[in-house]
Design a protein around this nucleic acid. Sequence first.
DNA 1: CTGAAAGCGCTTACAG
DNA 2: CTGAAAGCGCTTACAG
Lengths: 341, 341
Amino acid sequence: VAVTIKDVAKLAGVNPSTVSRVIANNPLISQKTREKVLKVMTELDYHPNLVARNLVSRITQTIGVLMPQSAENLFLNPFFPEVLRGISTAARRDGYDILLAMGETEEEEKETISRMVHGRRVDGLILLISRVENQLGDYLKSTDFPIAIVGKPPHDWGLCWVDNDNVDASYKATQYLLKLGHRAIGCITGSLEFVVSLDRLAGYKNALAESGVEYDRRLVIQGEFSQKGGYEAMNALLTTEPAITAVLVFDDVMAFGAIHQAHEQGRNVPADISIIGFNNTPLSNFVSPPLTTVDIFPYRLGTRVTELIIQRIENPEKEERFDYIGTNLLLRQSCQQVKIK
Amino acid sequence: VAVTIKDVAKLAGVNPSTVSRVIANNPLISQKTREKVLKVMTELDYHPNLVARNLVSRITQTIGVLMPQSAENLFLNPFFPEVLRGISTAARRDGYDILLAMGETEEEEKETISRMVHGRRVDGLILLISRVENQLGDYLKSTDFPIAIVGKPPHDWGLCWVDNDNVDASYKATQYLLKLGHRAIGCITGSLEFVVSLDRLAGYKNALAESGVEYDRRLVIQGEFSQKGGYEAMNALLTTEPAITAVLVFDDVMAFGAIHQAHEQGRNVPADISIIGFNNTPLSNFVSPPLTTVDIFPYRLGTRVTELIIQRIENPEKEERFDYIGTNLLLRQSCQQVKIK
DNA sequence: CTGAAAGCGCTTACAG
DNA sequence: CTGAAAGCGCTTACAG
């Protein structure tokens, strides 16, 4: 029922291949023929069947995006929506569509990847999932299909990826606390299985070392990436290390819990304890006190990873495979100069 | 380079059509042949080319989703991400993929619709954009392509759609204020060009009428859907109608501004003025006082609209075209019994 | 500058 | 129960 290239060809009195060339803007076609064909195309309201085109050209002009379902976090942190917005913008700019899949289980994720890649529905794939170890990792390092990841992969698999420079971000945050005169600086990390946690811990150590403050592992405590996790970690920290005057917390939501704990123990933030969070979640500007935190620019992570994957698809010979997105320490009201005792 | 149905056929010693039938689970195929083919398929790691399949079957098993870019709102309101999550879940459940597009301008939106629909890339389309008037509306009412909208369309175009029952939601909220003894109840609406605003206004009127409270249009004021809009509307309202003891605000973010204004004028919420918002944005539980508001269940809007579009695609003879998603009045701390003068 | 033919990788009547 | 043929709607060498 739809009008095809043959209908156009017939009405224009030319061969289908000629119509195809007009559509492709082939410069060989004469002006006269081009106009005639173009006229018939609008007359018949012709639109090329992209599926047929994909089949012969082996190019889908589509990028697959796999992201976690992450129900709860969505409310506290628009990280994934923001990255997605960036991906969408950059993809559209280069004429790519987005095939989106949200995976709940690792099983679903693998199935989705298989569908997209083996089904030839996409030219490349962007992964917003951090758990790329195990079976998924095996696949990722063995395939030469264009794949890009938001977040530095645990090993160099030759994949495309983009991430914040978390070492540097954490270094700058710690440096800021040091500049305020703090020396007993605690650190609440997320699970050290994540590269991001390890990187931020490294930055913390770097800054301490640079200032000649000895690294004390008793000041570092792991917590879960949740308000409760921060609340409990802070409790442990204040119990064993009551002398601390500042804490670096690797996630804003954990920081909310940490602040809550501090206040419950009668330690005012920032008067008694300075706190810095990470990720600049929307709430961080509304809590009391407004939280000093590190902005990580998720939208730019999205645009950049898309640029990288498109380059990988269209110019695989180029060696550019990864990039860092800058961060910004947002000074708000949760830190202040250390008190002189 | 990829293995095709022909490779499988050759190695299994059968015709490609037989392989195709095995894949399609055609019951005519003998058990013996089936097993032989299946074995070769795994041996060669064969995956059907979905693009080729789409071309001949004219079925893409893909639903297009068009949503606004809506940069700012994302931070205050995860409405769209939540709807998208619902769409993703329901689509996957029925074996559909999602082709996602975010439009910034109406031009982009029209272009995207054209690409998806005329390019035969999707079997149906879900629109998360509310501005469906003008040119887009002309298209929507004329096409018989399966299209579904989140949010009741301004006219009955025979489209699929899903929405909250905003008349009822607003009715229940107003009824609650009446039950608390309020009689002078103000109303801050969004632009009355939106169906949602009109519906909520209708619910407000219904509740008043039922309780024998005369509707006074001076108590109703339009504001912009922003904190500033609510702030200014509240100012106007308190200036001309200082006797009001409660206000229904058609959006939480506007309500934040309204509360701010009230407090600036020395009117305590809820002691002097009760306030109800709409949409249960995440912040509404964190502001002071925690806002009584109407939960609209965006995730369910997403799953339901997807069920409707899939039914429209697969069983167009069924007449079910729209549905309402229930709402829930969340009682928090921004309302209280009216004071006796 | 344009046409005729072959082919992308499938599916589906049509035979047998 | 299986095979051979035609076709989905395009593109792209190959001729001329």
